[in-house]
Amino acid sequence: MSSSLLLQQVLNGLAIGSVYAIFALGYTLIFSILRIINFTHGAIFTLGAYATYALTGARFGFNGLLANAALPLHLPFVLALIGGALFAAVSGVIVERLAFRPLRTRGSDPLLTLVSSLGVAVALVNVIQYLFGAEAYSYPADPFGQLPSAMNFGTSTEPVLVRTVQVIIFGVSMVVLALLTVLMNATRTGKALRAVAEDTVTASLLGINTDRLILLTFVISGFLGGVSGTLIGLSVGIAGPYFGIAFGLKGLAVIVLGGLGDIPGAVVGGLLIGLAESFVPAQYIAYREAVPFALLFVVLLLRPQGLLGRAVVQKV
Protein backbone atom coordinates (compact mmCIF):
# COMPACT_ATOMS: atom_id res chain seq x y z
CA MET A 1 0.00 0.00 0.00
CA SER A 2 1.48 3.32 -1.01
CA SER A 3 1.97 5.94 1.69
CA SER A 4 -0.42 8.35 0.01
CA LEU A 5 -3.14 5.70 -0.04
CA LEU A 6 -2.49 4.94 3.61
CA LEU A 7 -2.77 8.63 4.45
CA GLN A 8 -5.92 8.86 2.35
CA GLN A 9 -7.53 6.00 4.23
CA VAL A 10 -6.57 7.40 7.63
CA LEU A 11 -8.00 10.79 6.71
CA ASN A 12 -11.12 9.15 5.23
CA GLY A 13 -11.56 7.28 8.49
CA LEU A 14 -11.25 10.45 10.55
CA ALA A 15 -13.67 12.23 8.21
CA ILE A 16 -16.28 9.47 8.43
CA GLY A 17 -15.66 9.09 12.14
CA SER A 18 -15.99 12.75 13.03
CA VAL A 19 -19.56 12.68 11.69
CA TYR A 20 -20.35 9.80 14.06
CA ALA A 21 -18.50 11.55 16.87
CA ILE A 22 -20.32 14.85 16.54
CA PHE A 23 -23.64 13.03 16.40
CA ALA A 24 -22.75 10.95 19.43
CA LEU A 25 -21.54 13.76 21.72
CA GLY A 26 -25.00 15.05 22.53
CA TYR A 27 -26.32 11.49 22.62
CA THR A 28 -23.78 10.27 25.17
CA LEU A 29 -24.19 13.32 27.41
CA ILE A 30 -27.74 12.30 28.33
CA PHE A 31 -26.57 8.79 29.07
CA SER A 32 -23.70 10.00 31.22
CA ILE A 33 -26.07 11.92 33.50
CA LEU A 34 -29.30 9.93 33.39
CA ARG A 35 -28.15 6.44 32.40
CA ILE A 36 -30.85 6.26 29.74
CA ILE A 37 -30.68 6.08 25.98
CA ASN A 38 -32.49 8.96 24.37
CA PHE A 39 -33.97 7.76 21.09
CA THR A 40 -35.23 11.27 20.33
CA HIS A 41 -31.70 12.51 19.72
CA GLY A 42 -31.88 11.68 16.00
CA ALA A 43 -35.18 13.49 15.65
CA ILE A 44 -33.90 16.56 17.55
CA PHE A 45 -30.89 16.55 15.24
CA THR A 46 -33.26 16.61 12.23
CA LEU A 47 -35.33 19.38 13.82
CA GLY A 48 -32.19 21.47 14.26
CA ALA A 49 -31.24 21.01 10.61
CA TYR A 50 -34.75 22.01 9.44
CA ALA A 51 -34.84 25.00 11.81
CA THR A 52 -31.53 26.31 10.46
CA TYR A 53 -32.89 25.85 6.96
CA ALA A 54 -35.98 27.88 7.82
CA LEU A 55 -33.94 30.63 9.50
CA THR A 56 -31.87 31.20 6.39
CA GLY A 57 -35.14 32.26 4.81
CA ALA A 58 -35.28 29.29 2.46
CA ARG A 59 -38.61 28.04 1.19
CA PHE A 60 -40.15 24.63 1.92
CA GLY A 61 -41.55 22.38 -0.81
CA PHE A 62 -45.12 21.91 -1.91
CA ASN A 63 -45.98 18.68 -0.19
CA GLY A 64 -46.48 19.38 3.50
CA LEU A 65 -49.05 21.33 5.46
CA LEU A 66 -46.68 24.31 5.30
CA ALA A 67 -46.39 24.15 1.52
CA ASN A 68 -44.16 26.83 0.06
CA ALA A 69 -43.76 28.51 3.45
CA ALA A 70 -40.75 30.66 4.24
CA LEU A 71 -39.78 32.84 7.17
CA PRO A 72 -39.63 36.55 6.35
CA LEU A 73 -35.99 36.78 7.36
CA HIS A 74 -32.68 35.89 5.82
CA LEU A 75 -30.16 35.21 8.56
CA PRO A 76 -26.55 34.63 7.59
CA PHE A 77 -25.67 30.97 7.88
CA VAL A 78 -23.76 31.14 11.17
CA LEU A 79 -26.59 33.00 12.92
CA ALA A 80 -29.11 30.56 11.46
CA LEU A 81 -26.97 27.69 12.72
CA ILE A 82 -27.03 29.11 16.26
CA GLY A 83 -30.76 29.80 15.98
CA GLY A 84 -31.40 26.27 14.71
CA ALA A 85 -29.36 24.81 17.55
CA LEU A 86 -31.30 26.91 20.09
CA PHE A 87 -34.53 25.64 18.57
CA ALA A 88 -33.24 22.09 18.96
CA ALA A 89 -32.27 22.87 22.57
CA VAL A 90 -35.80 24.11 23.32
CA SER A 91 -37.20 20.97 21.68
CA GLY A 92 -34.94 18.93 23.92
CA VAL A 93 -36.38 20.68 26.96
CA ILE A 94 -39.94 20.05 25.84
CA VAL A 95 -39.16 16.38 25.24
CA GLU A 96 -37.62 16.14 28.71
CA ARG A 97 -40.70 17.70 30.32
CA LEU A 98 -43.18 15.53 28.42
CA ALA A 99 -41.50 12.17 28.08
CA PHE A 100 -38.72 11.89 30.62
CA ARG A 101 -39.60 13.85 33.76
CA PRO A 102 -43.00 12.22 34.39
CA LEU A 103 -41.36 8.81 34.29
CA ARG A 104 -38.45 9.87 36.48
CA THR A 105 -40.69 11.30 39.19
CA ARG A 106 -42.65 8.05 39.29
CA GLY A 107 -39.47 6.05 39.60
CA SER A 108 -40.51 3.74 36.78
CA ASP A 109 -38.36 1.16 35.03
CA PRO A 110 -35.47 2.97 33.26
CA LEU A 111 -36.13 0.81 30.21
CA LEU A 112 -39.52 2.44 29.93
CA THR A 113 -37.85 5.79 29.23
CA LEU A 114 -36.34 4.13 26.20
CA VAL A 115 -39.82 3.27 24.98
CA SER A 116 -41.31 6.68 25.70
CA SER A 117 -38.42 8.39 23.89
CA LEU A 118 -39.01 6.01 21.01
CA GLY A 119 -42.67 7.06 20.88
CA VAL A 120 -41.71 10.73 20.86
CA ALA A 121 -39.14 10.08 18.10
CA VAL A 122 -41.76 8.36 15.90
CA ALA A 123 -44.15 11.25 16.48
CA LEU A 124 -41.51 13.93 15.75
CA VAL A 125 -40.35 12.33 12.50
CA ASN A 126 -43.91 12.10 11.27
CA VAL A 127 -44.72 15.65 12.38
CA ILE A 128 -41.78 16.83 10.26
CA GLN A 129 -43.10 14.91 7.27
CA TYR A 130 -46.64 16.17 7.87
CA LEU A 131 -45.46 19.78 7.91
CA PHE A 132 -42.68 19.81 5.31
CA GLY A 133 -43.15 16.74 3.11
CA ALA A 134 -40.66 13.96 2.52
CA GLU A 135 -38.30 15.74 0.17
CA ALA A 136 -34.62 16.49 0.75
CA TYR A 137 -33.48 20.05 1.34
CA SER A 138 -30.16 21.82 1.21
CA TYR A 139 -28.96 25.14 2.52
CA PRO A 140 -29.36 27.79 -0.16
CA ALA A 141 -26.16 29.75 0.08
CA ASP A 142 -23.07 27.70 0.66
CA PRO A 143 -21.33 29.48 3.56
CA PHE A 144 -18.00 28.00 2.55
CA GLY A 145 -18.56 28.78 -1.11
CA GLN A 146 -15.30 30.69 -1.35
CA LEU A 147 -13.29 27.73 -0.06
CA PRO A 148 -12.35 24.93 -2.47
CA SER A 149 -14.68 21.94 -2.08
CA ALA A 150 -11.78 19.69 -1.07
CA MET A 151 -8.41 20.21 0.62
CA ASN A 152 -5.24 18.50 -0.52
CA PHE A 153 -3.16 16.87 2.23
CA GLY A 154 -0.80 15.20 -0.23
CA THR A 155 1.36 16.49 -3.04
CA SER A 156 0.24 17.87 -6.37
CA THR A 157 1.30 14.65 -8.13
CA GLU A 158 -0.16 12.34 -5.50
CA PRO A 159 -3.12 14.25 -4.12
CA VAL A 160 -4.78 13.16 -0.88
CA LEU A 161 -8.11 14.95 -0.89
CA VAL A 162 -10.54 15.47 1.95
CA ARG A 163 -13.79 17.39 1.52
CA THR A 164 -13.50 20.79 3.20
CA VAL A 165 -16.83 20.44 4.99
CA GLN A 166 -15.56 17.23 6.60
CA VAL A 167 -12.44 19.00 7.83
CA ILE A 168 -14.71 21.61 9.39
CA ILE A 169 -16.86 18.92 11.04
CA PHE A 170 -13.73 17.31 12.44
CA GLY A 171 -12.58 20.67 13.82
CA VAL A 172 -15.96 21.46 15.37
CA SER A 173 -16.20 18.04 17.02
CA MET A 174 -12.78 18.56 18.61
CA VAL A 175 -13.77 22.02 19.88
CA VAL A 176 -17.03 20.66 21.28
CA LEU A 177 -15.15 17.83 22.96
CA ALA A 178 -12.74 20.31 24.55
CA LEU A 179 -15.56 22.56 25.76
CA LEU A 180 -17.51 19.66 27.23
CA THR A 181 -14.43 18.31 28.98
CA VAL A 182 -13.76 21.71 30.54
CA LEU A 183 -17.41 22.04 31.54
CA MET A 184 -17.51 18.64 33.19
CA ASN A 185 -14.16 18.77 34.94
CA ALA A 186 -13.35 22.38 35.70
CA THR A 187 -16.62 24.08 36.63
CA ARG A 188 -18.99 23.93 39.61
CA THR A 189 -21.81 23.00 37.27
CA GLY A 190 -19.72 20.14 35.95
CA LYS A 191 -19.05 18.85 39.46
CA ALA A 192 -22.73 19.06 40.27
CA LEU A 193 -23.58 17.24 37.02
CA ARG A 194 -21.16 14.48 37.90
CA ALA A 195 -22.70 14.22 41.34
CA VAL A 196 -26.13 13.83 39.72
CA ALA A 197 -24.70 11.21 37.39
CA GLU A 198 -23.23 9.32 40.32
CA ASP A 199 -26.39 9.24 42.38
CA THR A 200 -29.42 11.45 41.84
CA VAL A 201 -30.87 10.90 45.30
CA THR A 202 -27.68 11.70 47.18
CA ALA A 203 -27.08 14.71 44.95
CA SER A 204 -30.46 16.18 45.81
CA LEU A 205 -29.85 15.48 49.51
CA LEU A 206 -26.67 17.50 49.16
CA GLY A 207 -28.80 20.43 48.08
CA ILE A 208 -28.16 20.12 44.36
CA ASN A 209 -31.14 21.06 42.22
CA THR A 210 -31.17 17.87 40.18
CA ASP A 211 -34.17 18.79 38.02
CA ARG A 212 -32.48 21.99 36.93
CA LEU A 213 -29.25 20.16 36.09
CA ILE A 214 -31.06 17.46 34.15
CA LEU A 215 -32.83 20.17 32.21
CA LEU A 216 -29.45 21.77 31.52
CA THR A 217 -28.19 18.44 30.22
CA PHE A 218 -31.06 18.30 27.75
CA VAL A 219 -30.42 21.90 26.70
CA ILE A 220 -26.77 21.17 25.94
CA SER A 221 -27.53 17.85 24.28
CA GLY A 222 -30.27 19.40 22.13
CA PHE A 223 -28.03 22.31 21.19
CA LEU A 224 -25.26 19.91 20.13
CA GLY A 225 -27.81 17.84 18.23
CA GLY A 226 -28.90 20.95 16.35
CA VAL A 227 -25.34 21.99 15.55
CA SER A 228 -24.42 18.53 14.29
CA GLY A 229 -27.65 18.22 12.28
CA THR A 230 -26.92 21.47 10.50
CA LEU A 231 -23.26 20.66 9.85
CA ILE A 232 -23.98 17.19 8.53
CA GLY A 233 -26.87 18.66 6.53
CA LEU A 234 -24.36 21.03 5.00
CA SER A 235 -22.17 18.09 4.07
CA VAL A 236 -24.73 15.68 2.63
CA GLY A 237 -28.00 17.61 2.37
CA ILE A 238 -30.98 17.30 4.74
CA ALA A 239 -32.17 13.92 3.59
CA GLY A 240 -35.83 14.26 4.62
CA PRO A 241 -37.60 13.47 7.92
CA TYR A 242 -35.55 10.32 8.61
CA PHE A 243 -32.26 12.24 8.27
CA GLY A 244 -31.19 11.95 11.91
CA ILE A 245 -32.88 8.65 12.67
CA ALA A 246 -30.55 7.03 10.12
CA PHE A 247 -27.62 7.89 12.40
CA GLY A 248 -29.30 6.51 15.50
CA LEU A 249 -28.26 2.89 15.24
CA LYS A 250 -24.62 3.55 14.40
CA GLY A 251 -24.57 6.35 16.96
CA LEU A 252 -25.56 3.79 19.56
CA ALA A 253 -22.67 1.57 18.49
CA VAL A 254 -20.34 4.56 18.76
CA ILE A 255 -21.26 5.54 22.29
CA VAL A 256 -21.14 1.98 23.56
CA LEU A 257 -17.83 1.25 21.89
CA GLY A 258 -16.24 4.27 23.51
CA GLY A 259 -17.75 3.51 26.90
CA LEU A 260 -21.32 4.52 27.60
CA GLY A 261 -21.60 8.01 28.96
CA ASP A 262 -17.92 8.73 28.56
CA ILE A 263 -17.57 11.98 26.63
CA PRO A 264 -14.07 11.50 25.15
CA GLY A 265 -15.16 7.89 24.60
CA ALA A 266 -17.83 9.01 22.14
CA VAL A 267 -15.21 10.73 20.03
CA VAL A 268 -12.77 7.82 20.29
CA GLY A 269 -15.56 5.38 19.42
CA GLY A 270 -16.69 7.49 16.46
CA LEU A 271 -13.22 7.86 15.02
CA LEU A 272 -12.41 4.18 15.54
CA ILE A 273 -15.53 3.07 13.72
CA GLY A 274 -14.76 5.55 10.95
CA LEU A 275 -11.24 4.15 10.61
CA ALA A 276 -12.50 0.57 10.65
CA GLU A 277 -14.97 1.36 7.87
CA SER A 278 -12.33 3.15 5.86
CA PHE A 279 -9.85 0.27 6.00
CA VAL A 280 -12.26 -2.38 4.69
CA PRO A 281 -10.51 -3.66 1.52
CA ALA A 282 -12.24 -2.66 -1.69
CA GLN A 283 -13.21 -6.22 -2.59
CA TYR A 284 -14.99 -6.74 0.75
CA ILE A 285 -16.87 -3.45 0.66
CA ALA A 286 -20.17 -5.36 0.59
CA TYR A 287 -19.59 -6.34 4.21
CA ARG A 288 -18.57 -2.84 5.32
CA GLU A 289 -21.90 -2.19 6.99
CA ALA A 290 -21.27 -5.09 9.36
CA VAL A 291 -17.81 -3.90 10.40
CA PRO A 292 -18.81 -1.40 13.12
CA PHE A 293 -21.11 -3.99 14.65
CA ALA A 294 -18.59 -6.81 14.49
CA LEU A 295 -16.09 -4.48 16.16
CA LEU A 296 -18.66 -3.58 18.79
CA PHE A 297 -19.47 -7.23 19.46
CA VAL A 298 -15.82 -8.19 19.90
CA VAL A 299 -14.96 -5.18 22.06
CA LEU A 300 -17.94 -5.86 24.31
CA LEU A 301 -16.87 -9.46 24.82
CA LEU A 302 -13.32 -8.41 25.69
CA ARG A 303 -14.13 -5.24 27.62
CA PRO A 304 -17.81 -5.29 28.61
CA GLN A 305 -17.69 -1.68 29.81
CA GLY A 306 -16.50 -0.31 26.46
CA LEU A 307 -13.08 1.07 25.63
CA LEU A 308 -12.93 4.05 27.96
CA GLY A 309 -15.81 3.13 30.25
CA ARG A 310 -15.39 2.40 33.92
CA ALA A 311 -16.36 -1.03 35.17
CA VAL A 312 -19.61 -0.44 37.01
CA VAL A 313 -22.29 -2.82 38.13
CA GLN A 314 -25.21 -2.04 35.86
CA LYS A 315 -28.60 -1.57 37.36
CA VAL A 316 -31.36 -2.65 35.02
Binding site: L5, N12, V19, I232, V236, A286
Partner: peptide, 21 residues
Protein backbone atom coordinates in the same frame (compact mmCIF):
# COMPACT_ATOMS: atom_id res chain seq x y z
CA UNK B 1 -14.41 -3.00 -9.46
CA UNK B 2 -17.94 -3.24 -8.10
CA UNK B 3 -18.60 -1.19 -4.98
CA UNK B 4 -21.71 -1.33 -2.82
CA UNK B 5 -23.41 1.02 -0.41
CA UNK B 6 -26.68 1.28 1.50
CA UNK B 7 -29.55 3.59 0.60
CA UNK B 8 -29.28 5.02 4.13
CA UNK B 9 -25.59 5.91 3.70
CA UNK B 10 -24.61 9.54 3.41
CA UNK B 11 -20.84 9.24 3.42
CA UNK B 12 -19.23 7.57 0.43
CA UNK B 13 -15.63 8.54 1.09
CA UNK B 14 -14.41 4.94 1.20
CA UNK B 15 -16.24 3.93 -1.99
CA UNK B 16 -14.94 7.05 -3.76
CA UNK B 17 -11.35 6.27 -2.77
CA UNK B 18 -11.75 2.69 -4.01
CA UNK B 19 -13.28 3.99 -7.23
CA UNK B 20 -10.52 6.51 -7.88
CA UNK B 21 -7.84 3.91 -7.16
Amino acid sequence: TVQTFQTTDTDFTAQVTNTLN
